[in-house]
Amino acid sequence: MASLKRSILLLILCGYTAFAAGPFVWAAMLSLRTTTEIHLDHFALPDPIHWEKFPDAWFNSNYATYFLNSVQVVVAAVLIVTIVGAMAAHCLARYRFRFNRLIYFVLFSTIIFPPQITIISLFQVLVNYGLYNSKLGLTLVYVAIQLPLTVYILESFFARIPADLFDAARMDGYSDWEIFWRVALPVALPAVATTVILNFILLWNEFLFAVVLITEEANRTLPLGIQRFIGDTQEDIGMIATGLMIAIIPVVVIYAFFSEKLIQGMTAGAVK
């Protein structure tokens, strides 16, 4: 009976895994085949395996530049969002001051606006400040769009850290600034890891703002680079797949690294 239940569960899990991982495996296979091969048979195994497509994309299709741009913009944005967001969340959760809840509400309520509403005015703002078509401009926009959700997630976590912990650190001689770095942030690490993963994946794949705010080849990010293989009349499916695979690697790395921390923090019962 128990083994039957187990088998059914296993079957369901297998089905789900195939459903979730199937397209990924397919794209991985496409990335190792040429577009001509793909047109002959969409689902054939790579034979021969065209490893050379990866260096080809990297060196000849400007992927090195796109990748580096994406790393610069996304890492900077995630770093700023995480630090500023954590500080804001700590402050809103910990300190009593006038308009605390009002600030929190105004910040959070911006989540309801779809990006299409703000993008035209943002475009104008960036042009006015000379930040249009620059990595700095895109970074700042990324910070702005991800900050509310980050603050929201972190605030609720910081608020659950017992106040005694901060009082104990004050008695131990630490200033508010030191307490944030040495007590609040480490204790909130599971939540911080969550927002890092979330923000990283979202921004790494971000297309809408990038396509509107960046037109110069030298400043393009990866999602824009992949789009370049889609021409007016034909698409280079093989190279798109190769580009996708290159783009996915950092996401997998980040996820593997931080989800470890995430699970560690949760099973350790961080707040106790």
Binding site: D164, A168, R170, G173, S175, V183, L189, K272
Partner: peptide, 19 residues
């Protein structure tokens, strides 16, 4: 400020640093 009073406190919840 608290840090300059040379006082130590034991809290009801113990308030040990979990990390």
């Amino acid at each position: 400020p608290a840090k300059d009073r040379d006082i130590a406190m034991v809290f009801q919840s113990y308030a040990l640093y979990p990390h």
